[in-house]
């Protein structure tokens, strides 16, 4: 059995229910933001953990999680979901509804050169090669906590007819493989953008497939919420 990764909206709502903090998803976008600075005390964090455990039917973790940041707690949860077999290692699936015109969503989210302004995780996007409906590019992330800059080359192929984008890593780095499918469809309230990622880590990679699954799940929750905000803002300005 698999479950849906919690969206940032749902996460904010759950934190509010447990702690009364009155947060919006936007306030959780900063990965370093601590519960303390959100005004959620230690008992409130325990309440959040307990609500998350209840939502997913997880056994209480006796080594109770005292994560200082909301993002770290979300990662710990996703890791537990992978370990419990509730999330499939090497496969993630998440979506968000963006309240903007379809063409606007499609255009902005496929403008790879501008991704550093759309995502918070990328420092640089270099276009290496373009063709009709395909692009090859190098992405570089911001340095991680160890100062390592992760970087790789991907190739994206767009199919505007079906609203589908497929991507794969050409230069796979620590991944055995990484295949990505984005789909777009009009729904009530806007455009649903869905990300499906299938991957495996190399044995010598610094993190295993399970950990990467939790990391990507957590990060996708944040990036999707951020992209929604930015696309909606730009669409409003453009209108």
């Amino acid at each position: 059995m698999t479950v849906t990764v919690i969206s940032l909206d749902e996460y904010a709502e759950l934190i509010n229910r447990a702690s009364g903090a009155g947060l919006t998803a936007d306030q959780l976008l900063d990965e370093t933001v601590s519960f303390d600075s959100l005004g959620v005390d230690s008992l409130g964090v325990l309440g959040v953990v307990s609500e998350l455990e209840q939502r997913y039917g997880l056994e209480p973790d006796s080594g109770a999680d005292h994560s200082k940041s909301a993002t770290a707690l979300l990662f710990a949860l996703n890791r537990r979901l992978v370990d419990a077999g509730l999330l499939t290692a090497g496969h993630t699936e998440q979506s968000i509804v963006i309240d903007a015109p379809y063409d606007e969503v499609w255009r902005q989210t496929n403008d790879v050169a501008a991704w550093p302004e759309l995502f918070s995780e990328y420092a640089k996007a270099e276009i290496l090669q373009t063709a009709e409906n395909s692009v090859t590019f190098r992405l570089s992330m911001h340095p991680d906590e160890n100062g390592t800059v992760w970087s790789w080359v991907s190739e994206r192929t767009l199919d505007p007819e079906t609203g589908t984008v497929r991507a794969r890593r050409v230069e796979t780095g620590p991944f055995e493989f990484m295949d990505i499918v984005w789909t777009y469809r009009k729904v009530e309230g806007g455009v649903e953008m869905r990300w499906v990622q299938d991957f495996a880590m190399k044995p010598q990679a610094p993190v295993d497939t399970e950990t990467m699954t939790a990391r990507i799940s957590t990060n996708s929750s944040l990036q999707l919420a951020l992209i929604r905000r930015r696309v909606e803002e730009r669409a409003r300005l453009a209108a």
């Binding site: 008992l43 325990l46 307990s50 209480p60 006796s62 109770a64």
Partner: peptide
Amino acid sequence: FDAIGATSR
């Protein structure tokens, strides 16, 4: 007390 992890396990 379980809920706040205050008691010995």
